[in-house]
Computed example of a mutant assay.
Amino acid sequence: MPVSSASPLPIQLLDLAGQHAPLQAELDAAVRHTLHEAAFIQGPAVATFAQELGAYLGQAHVVPCANGTDALQLALMSLRLPAGTEVIVPAFTYVATLEAAAVLGLQPVPADVLPGTFNLDPAAVEAALTSRTGAIVAVHLFGQCADLEALRTLADRRGVALLEDNAQAIGAQFTTSRGETWWAGTVGEVGTTSFFPSKNLGGFGDGGALFTRDAARAATLRQLANHGQTRKYYHEHIGLNSRLDTLQAALLQVKLRYLPAWTQARQQVAAQYDAALAAVHGLTVPERDPRSTHVFHQYTITVADEPGCREALQQHLAAHGVPSAVYYPMPVHAQPAYAYLGYRAGQFPVAERLCRTVLSLPIHPTLTAEQVSYVAATLAAWAGV
């Protein structure tokens, strides 16, 4: 399939400026109102945003905090696990999932993932469980729920906590075998998210939040995020200083109103990619778990596991004006910082293969059908279709 040398308008991996442009008047008004109130720390917008996000997630309790990594750490702190307790995490994830456990003196234990959805393999989790396990952290990677029903059942049967790293799947839903609909991030004892600017619901700087359906746990999380205090200068627990700025909350309030429409736009882009790339040799489109909706934080294909294959494809795409990215190029157990865990190459074969073969394509709400067609044609040309 021939492909023209010039792409239809600049194609970006993420187009925040284009996404924000139609909202500019509302965003400006939110900034002006916050400046006028001058309540920059724990101002009214923080509580209002938490309430609105909780309503969007099926009436969950939402506790805002400073960033997604703090959210993971606070979630683990709320479990009161003894030092050395094992915490099962995916072998294919961003390092923050392990980092939050490690800084608390807990023991991250990687488990392999499923090759199609990239999410935790429940069988691998079960094999990793020991008498020292205190929690399982399910990461809803790239926008799709992990197998929440299997993981919730497994956690309950073994008496361990289930946490959810929902930084990439805000608004995704999982349908159980009983026909129940669960919101991602609200099924475990605690769920977490990030409002890093590139996220589906991203702020204009750092930010994060925790989710729970347990009012008492929500109160504990608020306390832990505020120096362990419920009233000023009286500290009942060791906590963190982890707050969402009022300005970020006010801006996120505006963006939350548009999240459903943006999610639908991402899903339309993904459907167009699916149709256009299904027959392209040497590429595999992302698998959809029929029990989960997919909000497509990333649209991630896999390529042949051959030396230099992915790099050659990236170079071809770049030469034709198509950006791409690799999330993630190294499995967490191979990171130098986690060499002390003692894992070796080959122990998590699926995660290791994914690190060699995944490639994320441009996806965002303002990507046009013409641009998606061009990206697909560029991929097809590389494959010789």
Rank of each mutant, 00 (worst) to 15 (best):
T186W: 06
L76F: 10
A124I: 04
G68H: 08
H297D: 13
G384F: 07
A225I: 03
G208E: 10
R152T: 05
S198T: 11
L35I: 13
S177P: 12
W183A: 13
Q229G: 12
V63I: 15
A169C: 05
L57H: 03
L79Y: 06
V187F: 04
R243E: 13
A135W: 04
D28Q: 15
I11P: 06
E236A: 14
L251S: 06
A225L: 09
S324N: 09
L57R: 01
N119R: 14
L240T: 10
L256G: 09
T175P: 05
L317K: 02
Y299E: 01
T34C: 14
V326P: 10
L361H: 08
L148K: 06
F40E: 09
D214G: 08
V254G: 07
T357E: 00
T186C: 15
A71V: 05
A39P: 00
F348M: 03
D214F: 05
Y328D: 01
A128L: 03
A383K: 00
Y234H: 14
V385A: 14
A29K: 14
A351L: 00
T175K: 14
E126Q: 14
D165W: 01
G205C: 08
I363S: 04
G342S: 10
K199H: 11
V113D: 03
R132K: 14
L53M: 14
Q268L: 06
Y234W: 14
L247E: 06
D15E: 06
C355P: 13
D70K: 00
L240D: 07
L354I: 10
S373G: 15
E189P: 00
L247A: 07
K232V: 09
Q229K: 07
A138M: 04
A278K: 06
L240N: 10
L313G: 13
T284V: 10
Y327E: 08
T97K: 02
S373W: 00
V137S: 02
Y94G: 12
G202H: 11
G134P: 08
I41T: 05
A275S: 12
Y258G: 05
I301Q: 07
L27D: 09
S177H: 15
G202D: 02
A128N: 02
A249E: 12
R243Q: 14
R80Q: 14
A155E: 05
A167G: 10
